[in-house]
Simulated assay, not measured.
Amino acid sequence: MDPLTHALLGATAAQVALGPRLGRQAWLLGAVGGVLPDADIVIRSSADPLLAIQYHRHFTHALAFIPVGGIVAALPWLARQAHRPNWRPIVAATTIGYATHAVLDACTNYGTHLLWPFSPLRVAWNWITTIGPLLTLMLLVGLVFAVRRGARLPAAVALLLSVAYVGTAAWQRERALEMQVRIAAARGHPLDRAEMFPTVGNPLLWRSVYQSGETLYTDRLRVVSRAATRWKEGSTVDLLLEKDLPPPALADERVRRDYARFSYFSAGWVARASADPSVIGDARYSLRTDGFEPIWGVRFHPGTATPTEWVDRTIKNRVPISELWRELTGTAAGYMAVPLARN
């Protein structure tokens, strides 16, 4: 999630738990704890372009690391003699803020090492995107009223509304997955693997991606009432496996290793970009809805000193507000009724 939302969630949770004891200091402690796990962005190397994605949302985001992170976040206060007698609630506030971070990140589709060091699983519940204006606004309003009034109730209400919003998104995703099964069945496609990814800032529009054979099929779903739910046919792209790499790449041990790292990061959703096949991209995300243009990916140069190039097109990722609004309101062209379920 974006840093502002992480700070607000950590601050709001700390305000609810320790506001009466720490006063207006509680929210600041929680905010620091809420953003600290993303300090892992400093882990990077020019000689290893994949190091950054390997360690972002890694050990600093693990549930087992929360007590350590909470103490580290509290150090600026504990370094001052005046705060040391009150160290227990201070550490509690920063720890509460720290604990909210990884759980919120797991609600997105990026992947978070919640279970490190006990499991290498990247947990991604795929309920919300990393930018959620409504969620951020609810937390901001609740926190401002709570701090100004010196009360916990507004912050508690904001937390409850936030949980309700995320819960609604989780329910919507399950409905979308049901629609996905019907769409694949209508096409005569056996589902080898299927996933549903949220779109920016709403629980109504979903990016459907499923694998049938060695082909990935992507569609758009607008999930509202049963009668009004619609879908728009998207595009297809071939799944890229290690065996599909060209011979020079397969002969380079470093390329094979980096392909495995990138595939792990992308949860196995890997394909070549439609416009530039030299780019191997993360198929969970696309700059376009009518074709696969990855937001990020890799390009391999076998036999060179640094054979892996990180390709980042995040700067080109602009949300077309007018198009998104038409999709949300049901006026966008190309949407059609979801096929009926087979008996």
Score class of each variant (00 low, 15 high):
Arg122Pro: 09
Pro246His: 09
Ile96Met: 00
Arg284Val: 10
Lys243Ser: 13
Arg24Phe: 01
Arg222Ile: 07
Ala267Leu: 11
Gly268Asn: 11
Gly142Arg: 08
Pro277Trp: 06
Gly213Gln: 09
Met1Glu: 02
Val166His: 04
Ala332Thr: 01
Leu9Pro: 04
Ala176Arg: 07
Ala62Leu: 05
Gly330Met: 03
Phe262Ile: 10
Ala186Tyr: 10
Glu178Thr: 13
Gly10Ala: 04
Arg318Gly: 01
Pro89Cys: 08
Ala170Asn: 02
Asp312Ser: 06
Ala7Asp: 04
Asp252Phe: 04
Arg313Asp: 02
Ile315Thr: 05
Thr168Ile: 13
Ala99Val: 05
Thr112His: 05
Leu204Pro: 00
Arg80Ala: 07
Thr215Pro: 00
Phe292Trp: 00
Ala82Pro: 01
Trp296Asp: 02
Val35Trp: 02
Tyr210Ala: 05
Thr100Val: 06
Met1Asn: 07
Leu204Lys: 12
Ala332Gly: 03
Leu29Gln: 03
Glu323Met: 15
Thr304Val: 08
Ala228Pro: 02
Trp87Met: 06
Met179Ala: 11
Arg173Lys: 14
Pro198Gly: 11
Thr329Trp: 00
Gln81Phe: 03
Arg187Trp: 14
Ala151Leu: 07
Thr94Met: 12
Ala275Met: 02
Gln25Thr: 14
Ile66Ala: 09
Ala305Val: 07
Leu9His: 00
Gly268Lys: 05
Tyr264Gln: 05
Gly334Pro: 01
Trp77Asp: 03
Val91Thr: 09
